[in-house]
Nucleic acid binder design. Structure first.
Lengths: 129, 129
DNA sequence: CTTGCATGCTGTAGCTGCTACAGGATCAAG
DNA sequence: CTTGATCCTGTAGCAGCTACAGCATGCAAG
């Protein structure tokens, strides 16, 4: 059984964030030592690491809660995981498309804005009726 | 001089958001009618429209404040605008790169996860040491 | 045995950029 | 005069943490 600091090191989740996850019910309440300090076994640390990886993959906390539930359930879990993952993948791709049009718009905005002119064409465009 | 509702319609910024911008000092305090209601002239509405367009381009409120300041200043403003714009463009491109590796990681994660198996390979991978 | 630093605890406020009320006043039309 | 739209202020909520304050405890060095 490890302290919260060690759990943080082994999971890649900060101490503050671990406590936040517990407060929000994203992970179950940790066991406590007689002195009141939290204690983490390997399963609890694996759960934190799992959350960390999911966050790195951009999943929402809500999705992660569902994934954690599925990891407990046995039946159909692979299909459900796949569904959550593909929905997220779709959202990632939508964001990429958004960023591409953003990029194009920014390039277009700054195109005319090359000289050290007082009357900036970019500002003019943004202020136009 | 228009009411806040009309300013909202003409600028594309909602009534609530206009009040929020004022509260936060992002736009100057609006003039008031004798009855206490806010009044907006064309310049104020153009400012709101400007903010709206900048937000659509993904600029932060902090950048937008700077851009608004520059639109008042005369000297060097085009070079400064260009700098803010290009810094933002760089960030947009960084986010695109991030999303691309996210996409790749998600595809890889879900690759093995095709069958309706009970022991989901994706979950297994996320839980691994 | 003491000193002092690291770590732990709870509780609360802040970040970004809004959005959504509650609870009331006022206006404009029928 | 009534009704419904619009306005006002003030406050709380969203996501997902992060950063304290203010205190208690543990552990190693001297």
């Amino acid at each position: 059984m490890r302290t919260i600091g060690e759990a943080a090191k082994h999971s890649g989740v900060t101490v503050e964030t671990i406590r936040y996850y517990e407060r929000e019910g994203i992970v179950p309440e940790a066991d406590r030592h007689a002195n009141g300090r939290r204690l983490y076994d390997e399963a609890a640390i694996a759960r934190l690491r799992f959350i960390r990886r999911c966050r790195d993959l951009g999943f929402t906390i809500s999705d992660i809660s569902n994934l954690l539930d599925l990891s407990g359930a046995s039946s159909r879990s692979c299909a459900d995981v796949k569904e959550i993952g593909e929905r997220h993948l779709t959202q990632v791709r939508e964001r990429m498309v958004d960023l591409e049009s953003l990029e194009a718009a920014l390039i277009e905005l700054l195109r005319a804005c090359t000289e050290n002119q007082a009357d900036c064409p970019a500002l003019k465009q943004l202020f136009a009726d």
